[in-house]
Design a protein around this nucleic acid. Structure first.
Lengths: 110, 110
DNA sequence: AATACCGGTATCTTTCAGGATACCGCAAAA
DNA sequence: TTTTGCGGTATCCTGAAAGATACCGGTATT
């Protein structure tokens, strides 16, 4: 493989980890892989995230076309967050991350 | 799947992204997937990283048993960094990251 | 003898993700 | 009519990541 191409690959890795990295983004995406969720549902599932951070991260993921936000206009306020088609294309990647994480945890514990 | 298990998965995602995330760690690992490298070789390949940061990240990866550091005691100072067996187990994951990154870049550009 | 490369270390500084805490309007339930 | 839940926003603050810059002792090169 050419050197140029390797450089591009490194940038791809950096870009992707910039998108799904950080304390929360990967977890949010993984949580939405399971099913579409409402704001507070997501918040509860993630455990210790603050609403401020959740709002910010969701907006970021929305901007990057990975998550979509829909307001159900049925009386009370209700907002549903779900993965877009592009977001769902991350599922196998997230699956591998989980798998490696399990393996890694076992190794570290031994 | 049970709720407990989902929570564990979220933690796995967070843990893994903590290890390979950040501006440089993923790129360092990807670069070492290619071949073992010396300090300044790695530095050049990564482009804009400072020696301070490279040192720090390499130590972190060493601590996590993903990278090994070997000093070649042949006259001049020569240090080789390479992936450990455990580090090489990340290769498929990194491959998927690159693949998704390429796809994502195309989508964003269109 | 001077210069350049190797593998870093030492300081200083900026940036920013993310926590803590309080609050908001609205609607439904009690 | 008070309380509870929803979906957030507003401020303030800290710690860690990482850039900028300078420097180090060694060796090899010229």
């Amino acid at each position: 493989m050419k050197n140029k191409q390797k450089q591009v690959q490194l940038r791809d890795v950096q870009d992707v980890l910039d998108i799904i990295g950080g304390r929360w983004r990967g977890a949010i995406l993984a949580s939405l892989c399971d099913k579409a969720k409402r704001f507070n549902e997501l918040k509860r599932d993630l455990g210790s995230i603050t609403p401020r951070t959740l709002t910010k991260e969701l907006k970021y993921l929305e901007m990057n076309k990975l998550v979509s936000r829909e307001v159900e206009a049925s009386g009370a306020v209700s907002v549903i967050y779900s993965l877009t088609k592009h977001g769902r294309s991350l599922e196998p990647l997230i699956g591998q991350i989980v798998a490696w994480g399990q393996k890694h945890r076992k190794i570290v514990l031994s």
